[in-house]
Computed example of a mutant assay.
Amino acid sequence: MTYRVPPLQCLTAFEAVARLRSGTLAAQELCVTPSAISHRIRQLEDVMGIELFNSVQGGFTLTARGSEYLEVVKEALNALSHYSARPRSAGEIRQLRVAAPPTFARQVLVPHLTGFQDAHPDIELILQLSVPLVGLKSENADIEIRFGTGSYPGLETVKILDEPVFPVCSPSYLRDVGPFQSPEKLSTARLLRCPLEPWRPWLVAAGLDWPEPSIGAQFVDLGLMLEAAVNGQGVALARNRMARSWISSGVLVPLFDLQVRSIYAYYITYPPGCEEGSDIVKFVRWMTDILRNPLK
């Protein structure tokens, strides 16, 4: 017998949108983008040959056929969620490979790992480092945290951290080369270079039509650049979570109140079609919840 069954991710998207009456809320619940939700609804309508929702400004309302189909989908999802094809043995450990850029891994991921391990003792995390922007890593990962523009074709992509940048330096550098009472005074400072954190957006916001710095070593890692700043080598651009440990310990000090959004942010990516309740979805939800909370 041939079954005409739509993809499971389309069914879960449909049920979530119908229940929450919002594509944005459904996307947050399923840890995907709103555009992915829209794509799944359209795919489901194409497969079934029916219109599921009425176009109503500010929300979603089910069509008559959509309401009928929702009851079928809810019953099917409920049946599937209460049956396991292979019961897991007590204490069974499953591995989950997570790749992340070095500074994110050290400053954000590792400090919170205990919380995930306590909540999911049956999941063994294998952490590996990746190269920011390029995304190179030593082995295939189930989940990858990426630093870049957010364009990762073929993967589910969720923005998890988009912090503004601001200049920092060590107290000794501020004493020896400063004070920097205004952004213009940075003309006497060495602006540390990192292709991951270009200076132009901040300079423009500060009213300075200066080119990107062209003197000194380049650091292809945010943590290395911040370490250079800690060692009195110049002024670096920092983000709150990435520089939190250095700033809280006093080895780096912010110079100005001006904070500017960068062209890059952190995203979490994973293969499409992950089922609700899978280890990947559990990790994605945990990570997004951690970063949704403000720094204390």
Rank of each mutant, 00 (worst) to 15 (best):
P271D: 13
W246H: 11
E124K: 15
V177W: 01
P87A: 13
Y69A: 11
F116E: 11
P213Q: 11
V253G: 02
I290S: 02
V220R: 10
S214Q: 03
S22I: 07
G49N: 01
P6K: 08
N293E: 12
L258S: 03
L222D: 02
Y83H: 15
I37C: 10
C274E: 12
E197M: 10
E227M: 07
P294G: 09
H112F: 06
V230S: 03
I143A: 03
E45F: 09
R40Y: 09
E29R: 15
L77V: 04
P271Y: 06
E144C: 01
C31Y: 03
S249P: 00
P183W: 04
G49D: 15
R175Q: 12
D209K: 03
T269I: 05
F256C: 11
E45G: 08
A18V: 11
A243R: 01
A217P: 03
G59K: 09
F256W: 08
L174F: 06
F256V: 04
V47N: 11
G154F: 09
D122Q: 13
Q43K: 06
N240Q: 13
I37W: 09
R241F: 00
G148N: 08
E45Q: 15
A119Y: 13
T2N: 12
T2V: 11
V253L: 12
A27K: 05
L70H: 07
N240K: 07
L174V: 04
Q259P: 02
P167E: 14
N240T: 10
P171Y: 01
I280D: 02
R40F: 05
A26F: 09
N140V: 14
D289P: 00
A119P: 08
G49M: 11
L129M: 01
H120A: 11
Q9H: 15
V134N: 05
C194H: 00
R4V: 12
V131W: 03
T12V: 14
A100E: 06
S214F: 10
F116C: 03
V220K: 05
R285I: 00
S67M: 06
E124G: 04
P198H: 07
R241S: 09
P179K: 09
A64V: 10
V220A: 04
C169H: 04
H82L: 12
T288D: 00
E184R: 15
V5G: 00
G150T: 09
I263D: 15
F283G: 14
G216E: 14
T12D: 14
I126L: 15
T103D: 05
E45L: 07
P167R: 01
Q259I: 02
K137E: 06
T114M: 12
R261H: 12
P164G: 11
K296A: 10
T12N: 01
G91P: 10
A265M: 10
A265F: 12
R4G: 05
I37Y: 04
